[in-house]
Structures are given as structure tokens and as C-alpha cells.
Design a protein around this nucleic acid. Structure first.
Lengths: 222, 222
DNA sequence: GAGTATGGATCGTAGCACTATCCAGCGGCC
DNA sequence: GGCCGCTGGATAGTGCTACGATCCATACTC
């Protein structure tokens, strides 16, 4: 398969594919001549994986590069790769310098996790992310403790238990690892979308317009 | 309060505040002279709201502008404002031109929602988002139908029902609306973080390193 | 064998979220 | 009451990301 065919098969522009090759997100094709290379279905699949992580997961290219490198690294276990993905997802909104309040809130989150019986690395990035949410709520005037997360934690626990039971039934590393990555990223988006739909459903009952047929949907300017 | 005090109170640089004023995210201060203006606690609170939506919600500034405009618009109901927020959150990953596959998948999602008994606007942006996740899964080789979303939908339904019961007990519009916005955005992040922690907990049991004390955490390059 | 396409390297670009500079005008302190 | 620094507002510039455009010698196609 030539690059133009690869482009046609994935819907990506050739300069985009070249960019991904440069950044190491896609392995180079098999060189057949000085200006000729051959790409296969693996390249098509890899590009689809990249676009899934970029478009649905909204991950920066550099992060996707780290993830696919971990996926390709045969020495890494599934749990290990999942750690990279979790790091990547939590890193999205982190801008380096954070107020000390967040550090102060971390022990609260750790206490919650201990109470839930979850054994996670204390350096798990999601811990800081939860702490950030907690201090943000408080800065906005919500006088809350970690108990506001309880109901979400229970739901998350049930979902994760079920997910992990589904994972890796093929037994082959490549499939298991990619399945875990894709599942983590895509179903995070799906869960968020479903929660919003459920919110809309229940909100209509609580605050909604009396006539559901005339429910207007706004197009924010932009 | 002068702008320098506003800056100190929020931790934001003065040029950043000026930028938000220009973009209309923050109302202008009360002018006391040609080069003097007075800001109050409302401004502090507004800036905190903006930073919450930007940092935790990862929304672009233009979207935050649309949201605060809707919050400020007294003629909009809570349900109405929630629609703007949902639109904003779903819009994050949309880049305009989408393959027709997504349109083809939308009826499948609608059938799922009908089956769940959720009454939502057919134009709800989260519907397309779910459709995008579905086609993305299929492009990656997952031969799945909408039933993969069932378990997530049930969890989302229970959470949303509980959330909406909590919402707006003060009865005052401003508080209710902002509470709904903040809750939607911040708890989306919290739920995602909790799911990842739960995944890590269950993944350790399923794939994990035998020694939890030596569980290494990777720092992706970057 | 003429014309077009190919892979690789280099440079350029659009959009976003600020950031720096400039400017006249006020404020406050001696 | 003089002066220096800070004020708010306008304009232009910056750094980053994710590409896109161009150029080149070479090779495939008809």
C-alpha cells in the first residue's frame, strides 16, 4: 500500500500522515526504493487508533505518542500501559504550577480511597485530579467534603469491576492492551455523554419547558 | 477593589483579566475615573467560575463566554442553560466535517434512548457524540451494538436522577443555574477520575504486579 | 520517455490563550 | 503641589500545537 492509498483508506491527508511518521506515532513503511515505501493494514489500524485518541479522547499528539509507544513495548504489562493512559488522561488539564491547596486536599482524597477499600498507587494522577475538583468546588463556595464523591465512586466501582471482567479474554497481549486503552478512553467519553443525556432527561422533568415538543435547543454563538 | 487587588484575590495575571474583560467573560468594573474602575466580590467569583470551567472542564474561552452569557441571561431557565452547557461540552471534540457513518449511527442511539425511556431532544449534542464513539469502536474492529452502552446508561441514569434531586433547593435562580453548570462540568471530571481509580484498583487485581509496594508509575516523556 | 506521483526534509501557517508594550491620566505621599 | 509609579484601555506580539505547503531527486505509469 502506498501512502496515497493509506491516506484514502483512513481519510487523513498525506501531510498529516507524514507528520505522524515524523513524530513516531506510526512506524515507517517498508522501504522498497529510495522514494517508495509499503504500508500495510497495521498502519491503517494504527492511524485509526491515533484518530480515536485524538478526536474522542482529545489527547495531544505528544501524549498519543507516549501511549502508542507503551502499547508497542512488549515488556509492559496491561496494568502498566493502563497506568500510562491514566497519566495521560489526567494530565490534560494540568498546567504545572498549582496552588498548595491541592496538595493539602490530597490526603482527604486518600482517606476516601482507603475508606472505599481501593488499593491504588498514591501517585496515581487521578488522585490529584480529584483533589483539584474538590478545591475548585470550595473556591466556588461549596462547603463540601469528599462525601460528595461517594455516589460517583460507587457507580465507578461497579462499572470498573464489570469492565475489567470483560477485558483481555482473548489472552493475546496486543489485543488486550489495545482493548484496555480504547475502552478506557472511549467509554470515558461515552459515559460522560450518557450522563449528560440522563441529566437532560431528568432536568426536563425538574425544570423543563412544559411542552416537550417545543423544547428549544440553543446554538451558542461561535 | 482595584484590578491589582482583583488579580491578587484570584491569582490571575492582570493581562489575563484584561483579556477576559475584552472577551466579555467578566463584566466591566464600575468606572470611578477615566483610568480607575472598581471591582467587587462578584468579579472574584466570576473569575473563579471561569477558571473552573477552563481548568477542570477544559473548555475554550469562547465557549466559557457563551456559558456565562447564558448564566447571566435572566430569561433563560435552568434547563435552558444546561442545554448550552451540554452543547459546549459535546462540542469540544467536533471538527466540523464528519463522515456520514456518524449520521447513520444516530438512529441506533435514538433507539437506545427510546428503549431506556429517556425523553431528550433529538438534537441533543450528546447523541451525536455517542454515535461518534460507536462508529469509532467499529472502525477499530469492535463488532458492537448500542448494548455496550447499556451498563453505562444505567449508572448515568441513577446518578443524574440523584443529582437533579439535589439541584436548586435554594430556589434562587442565580444559585441554581450556577450550581447546575458547575455540577455538570466538575462532577464529569470527578466521575472520570474516579472511574480511572476504580479501574486501577480492579486492574491491579486482574493484571497487576505481584508486589503492590513496588508498583511503578511511569512518567511519559514530555 | 514524458509526465506525474512518491517519500523525505524544511519551512510556513492558523488558531488559541494569553502577554508585552504603549499611552494618557490619576493617586498618593512627601 | 510636584513627581513617580500605578491605572485601565488599546494594539500588537508571543509560544505552542497540529498540521499544510513547497521543494527535491527519484521512480512508477502509460
Amino acid at each position: 500500500m502506498k501512502m496515497s492509498e493509506l491516506s484514502a483508506a483512513t481519510g487523513l491527508a498525506i501531510p498529516t500522515i507524514k507528520y505522524y511518521l515524523r513524530e513516531g506515532l506510526v512506524p515507517p513503511g517498508v522501504r522498497t526504493a529510495r522514494n517508495q515505501a509499503d504500508y500495510g493494514h497495521d498502519h491503517v489500524h494504527r492511524l485509526r487508533l491515533i484518530r480515536a485518541l485524538v478526536e474522542v479522547g482529545e489527547l495531544p499528539i505528544s501524549t498519543v505518542a507516549a501511549i502508542v509507544a507503551a502499547v508497542d513495548d512488549e515488556t509492559r504489562s496491561t496494568h502498566d500501559v493502563l497506568g500510562v493512559v491514566h497519566h495521560a488522561l489526567a494530565l490534560r488539564g494540568a498546567h504545572g504550577d498549582e496552588p498548595t491547596e491541592v496538595d493539602d486536599a490530597v490526603p482527604e482524597i486518600e482517606a476516601l480511597l482507603a475508606d472505599l477499600g481501593w488499593r491504588v498507587s498514591p501517585r496515581a494522577p487521578a488522585v490529584r485530579e480529584l483533589a483539584r475538583v474538590l478545591v475548585t468546588l470550595r473556591r466556588l463556595g461549596w462547603e463540601v467534603g469528599t462525601e460528595v464523591f461517594r455516589r460517583y465512586a460507587r457507580a465507578a466501582d461497579q462499572l470498573a469491576a464489570w469492565e475489567l471482567k470483560q477485558t483481555g479474554r482473548s489472552g493475546r497481549r496486543a489485543e488486550t492492551v489495545e482493548g484496555a486503552v480504547v475502552g478506557t478512553v472511549l467509554f470515558e467519553a461515552a459515559l460522560a455523554a450518557l450522563r449528560r443525556l440522563a441529566e437532560e432527561h431528568h432536568s426536563a422533568a425538574r425544570f423543563g419547558a412544559p411542552e416537550p415538543t417545543s423544547a428549544r435547543q440553543q446554538e451558542p454563538t461561535g
